[in-house]
Design a protein around this nucleic acid. Sequence first.
DNA 1: CGATTTATTGAGTGAGGTCAAACTGGGTGG
DNA 2: CCACCCAGTTTGACCTCACTCAATAAATCG
Lengths: 259, 259
Amino acid sequence: MPKGQLKGICFHPSKETKCVTCSLSSLCLPISLNFEDIDQLDKIIKRRQPLKKGEHLFHQGDRFDCVYAVRSGSIKNYAMTNDGEEQITNFHLPSELVGMDGIDCDTYPVSAKALETTTVCEIPFSRLEELAKELPELRSQILRIMSRELRDDKQMMMLLSKKNAEQRVATFLTNLSTRFKRRGYSPYTFRLPMSRNEIGNYLGLAVETVSRVFTRFQNNELIAVNGKEVHILNMDDLSELAGLPEQEPRHIEVNASTG
Amino acid sequence: MPKGQLKGICFHPSKETKCVTCSLSSLCLPISLNFEDIDQLDKIIKRRQPLKKGEHLFHQGDRFDCVYAVRSGSIKNYAMTNDGEEQITNFHLPSELVGMDGIDCDTYPVSAKALETTTVCEIPFSRLEELAKELPELRSQILRIMSRELRDDKQMMMLLSKKNAEQRVATFLTNLSTRFKRRGYSPYTFRLPMSRNEIGNYLGLAVETVSRVFTRFQNNELIAVNGKEVHILNMDDLSELAGLPEQEPRHIEVNASTG
DNA sequence: CGATTTATTGAGTGAGGTCAAACTGGGTGG
DNA sequence: CCACCCAGTTTGACCTCACTCAATAAATCG
């Protein structure tokens, strides 16, 4: 396991960040598009100046006009409950699309804020729709992305309504691990881009509970934690605690069930 | 290839149930389509025999091939957690689309079961995609429906992670009330199609808690309950308890859409 | 460097879960 | 008619998990 991330090489916030050459294209919107189509998509995408930690990509209530693909760094989505509390609804890692839930209501229903220095690709939605007219693959890719988000949300609902604190944190960690792995990073060693507070907020737990669970997991030698650095020491037990296999759609070859 | 749609044979009451004449069309998929387009859509839609209470529309793991619009009755979506417990992820009322979260994974990620006698329109997804190629309005309508479901899911996540039992039940009731109202039924008097158990499961509460909250709400004269019949006596207080305005996207005047 | 935010740990409490028992309404059959 | 059941619902008693409050420790920032 290389501790040095080779990904760093690819990343240049420069003009050469085109979809075709982007290391994330196989996870991102261009998936399953051919070169020509990717090129077309590329033309409507703007690369923006990196966001600094704490800066907003958009605010809840802003006019919906673009969706964004995270290139590097991370984004949190959050909404304000009517008693003024923040509720985090999602964390986005590189290659993930942000802002898709604004489509039907003219304005973004949540805010999007950088958890660290973050670069994104900006995709004007009207032009994406235009392009989708011509590219059936792009069209179904958009649908797939949204439907995946729907499924993830259902998983989250299950977590919130059925799992206890330990299971929630275990699920959170294994979920992150899976996503890091798919992006070419180590699934065992990574840095949490968010604070304990944000983890708790997201998981429906008090900060103190998150902290306590982290401690308990360390005592049980499931993980080792140093600030935001996390090592997963016992993936099997952690996954089992997490419960649902989740995230990886398990294609069951037994669809031929009797009707 | 199309096995000669002999309209007569299919199912009597469906003769007149075409999208154009359907009272739900303004809430359903055909919204914002013109007559010709609706007619096209109509051609790919099959009306099925009514489902009896407890019958399945599809099972978790079945091959994904169709989405369904509820015509009458109601459907619950649920998944099995890996410890064999049922987790309800949604209730669907007439005009609502079922099965959209299966798009990207070949199989339905949840089961769909009739809560009462229920009729649905079956829409083969591949043909819907075909049609969407030609009809931009249909395309964006599909996106809107999914994105709305995304937003509803976020609301649900907030409910599950921040609200207490009373707020959850209040939200549940006002949400149902709103949806009934939009469908032309009384927002004050309606029949719950689901059991207390199912409400609790959905809201992340024990049955007993749901029952107790119902009782408390009656003592406070917020509602009157007789079995599954619910009267909302004090909508204002109930809505306030529910917290978030939710469900009705607050269009901020700016929206100059064609009515 | 102190100042301020963020994280951890401890003690006490309460909302809601669990378990158990009683009640309801509807169906069935004597 | 009543007795009986069965599933769904309600109510009560008790307990537990995670929240709150509070104090300290560690990390981050100016």
